[in-house]
């Protein structure tokens, strides 16, 4: 009876309808987002293997990762490799994207055709891209070494030399990701009022001065957005390195990035608790990067 009278109230009916509409999402969120976050956090303090009952070990996983060089010889090196990858991947990627966006923003015909072409690597599976580039990088039959041979330049066994493997994979990712950054930069460029350039021209500024004093400063929010998202993305690079090195991060761990280490701890050695600890360390690193963005970067994107 009480429920029936409640149902007659408009406000209650509205609230009920609202909850019914979001109920599937709430359930989904609880089961596949919230509980996993909590489980992961709890298990990072246990010796869980997914098969055994977990025992609480307090901070031992974290301590082992951070301080025990005998048991975890690759934790710090894998962080270093990841940072190297970011340094190789992000600045070049941003510069290439900006360059493409500037070319496209010069009121040329066929803008859409060019956009389309630059986008194709972006939408394709990174595994297929890795297969294609593995062939291009092949020391004997690959396009890259054959071109170098023609030009009589030094050839490399790109994916199997300590010095070249990581840059080779980074180059592949730059190639694949250029279209995304380009489209974001382009949106930023279209938002810069034409009058600014007109005023600068009247003042006698040349193209380079216009770029340096108008375009770049006004693109700052977009640039920082791309910088942070691509640093966060590159920090989690995994798929292409896994398939190109058979999960080993070879040669000599020179491509052994952070997530590959995490993946191996979990699914090769079944140290789930330790891997959960690694995932929370990753989370803290990403939080810090995001915090730096919010702290030091202008927030308006309009």
């Amino acid at each position: 009876m009480k429920f029936a009278s409640l149902l007659r109230q408009k406000k209650f009916r509205e609230g009920l309808a609202g909850y019914l509409f979001v109920l599937p999402l709430l359930l989904y969120f609880a089961i596949f987002v919230l509980i996993p976050i909590l489980i992961s956090f709890y298990y990072s303090f246990t010796d869980w293997t997914m098969r055994s009952t977990p025992h609480f070990v307090s901070f031992r996983n974290y301590a082992e990762l951070l301080f025990n060089k005998q048991k975890q010889p690759y934790f710090w090196p894998s962080l270093l490799v990841t940072v190297k990858y970011i340094i190789l991947r992000v600045p070049v990627g941003l510069a290439l994207s900006l360059f493409l966006a500037l070319l496209l923003n010069s009121r040329i015909r066929g803008e859409n055709f060019f956009k389309l072409c630059y986008f194709i690597p972006m939408i394709t599976s990174v595994i297929a891209i890795a297969a294609l580039w593995k062939w291009l990088y092949d020391p004997v039959t690959g396009f890259i070494n054959q071109s170098l041979a023609l030009a009589q330049m030094t050839q490399h066994n790109w994916l199997n030399e300590v010095g070249t493997a990581l840059p080779a994979i980074a180059a592949m990712s730059v190639w694949q990701g250029a279209g995304y950054g380009m489209i974001i930069f382009l949106a930023g460029l279209k938002g810069i009022p034409e009058e600014l350039y007109e005023a600068a021209r009247i003042d006698g500024a040349n193209a380079w001065q216009q770029f340096w004093n108008i375009t770049l400063p006004l693109l700052r929010p977009v640039t920082f957005f791309l910088l942070v998202t691509s640093i966060i993305g590159s920090f989690q690079v995994f798929d292409q390195i896994y398939v190109l090195t058979s999960g080993l991060g070879s040669p000599e761990h020179s491509t052994f990035v952070y997530i590959l280490n995490l993946f191996n701890q979990a699914f090769r050695y079944y140290r789930m608790g330790l891997a959960c600890a690694m995932s929370y360390i990753l989370f803290v690193i990403i939080l810090v990067i995001t915090w730096i963005q919010f702290k030091f970067v202008p927030q308006s994107y309009d």
Binding site: G15, V33, I35, I286
Partner: peptide, 26 residues
């Protein structure tokens, strides 16, 4: 309009910061 709408939505948005690898194993 339903109770706690803004809070629930904000909480969910905050979860977007969490990388997939944190929840992958669970």
């Amino acid at each position: 309009n339903f109770p706690f709408k803004e809070k629930i939505f904000g909480f969910m948005l905050a979860s977007l910061m969490i990388p997939f690898y944190v929840i992958m194993i669970p």
